[in-house]
Design a protein around this nucleic acid. Sequence first.
DNA 1: GCCAAATGCTTGGCCAGCCAACTATTCATG
DNA 2: CATGAATAGTTGGCTGGCCAAGCATTTGGC
Lengths: 167, 167
Amino acid sequence: MPGPTPPPTDPDASPAPTTPSPAVACGMECGEISHAISRVARSHRVTAGQLLRRLGLYPGQELLMMRLWEVGPQRQSELIKLLGIDASTVTRMVQRLEQAGLVSRRPSPDDRRAVLVETTAAGEALRAEVGQVWQELEDRTLAGLTDDDRRDLARLLSLLERNLTAG
Amino acid sequence: MPGPTPPPTDPDASPAPTTPSPAVACGMECGEISHAISRVARSHRVTAGQLLRRLGLYPGQELLMMRLWEVGPQRQSELIKLLGIDASTVTRMVQRLEQAGLVSRRPSPDDRRAVLVETTAAGEALRAEVGQVWQELEDRTLAGLTDDDRRDLARLLSLLERNLTAG
DNA sequence: GCCAAATGCTTGGCCAGCCAACTATTCATG
DNA sequence: CATGAATAGTTGGCTGGCCAAGCATTTGGC
């Protein structure tokens, strides 16, 4: 019986769907929204990756470049705060972007511990294309949503972000 | 002048914030929601990772386990469809879960290409704890949201998912 | 019955991202 | 002024996740 039968454990599992599961008490379906977040996030990243591939970028790198375009040369510690990712991730991402010729690094004159990261001419040349890719990504993501939907979504996402970064 | 000054390129950048940027035309702020999705997704995954760590799981693995608990022994190709992730990812994830003693693999009697994956007793023992972790994650994520908010969010996320998996 | 096409899975290679441990520099405090 | 604490960055090690290439098996078409 290797078919898609439910697991034979829990022999007292009643087939009535209205009865709450005895193992875990869940409001509707357990972790429904967390599941949806996982799936949407992965699809979103994959879509970004497909669009960025033609520019020679990997998903995640465009976020760093966009920050540099937005705020100008920055020390890595500032990028870490702005992007909210781990220091070691930034170190290696900057190393790869430097190797690709898109950013350059130089020691900070004020603080001999710090490294300043700035875009090169080649990096600057990607700015418009990345903007188009990002716009295309946003368009695909939000296709069919009304302006009200978009406002709601932005509001709800910012609530989630606050919740999840509080701890 | 290594301060956080804006980049000196684009000398015609007017300081009026109401004027659309000449480089890229964006509705409100460029890719606002895509940025929010990225940030929320990362925080969500990090939070899941912190909660799962005490169970010896890495984020992503719990999704595979939950599917197995839900639908019973499955061939990998079915898990690939259910989880929507790459075949190679499932292969290696199952390898690691097997090494951790949480799942076992055996060849399918019907199809000599296929591999059946099922949970072990040790894997089954994690079921309740993973359910609690997932519930805690959902609670933290949705803290402060009304029931209406949650319904809206679920609806909007499912729209995004449809949009992003269409291509 | 045979051979090409489709399916199921694996491996190699790459990247983002995390944690832990470490070095070098700066800062604060007595 | 000296010493410990905080900060900046790096490296090692591990995972999830992707793509591309490859192998074994099954299936469809002739």
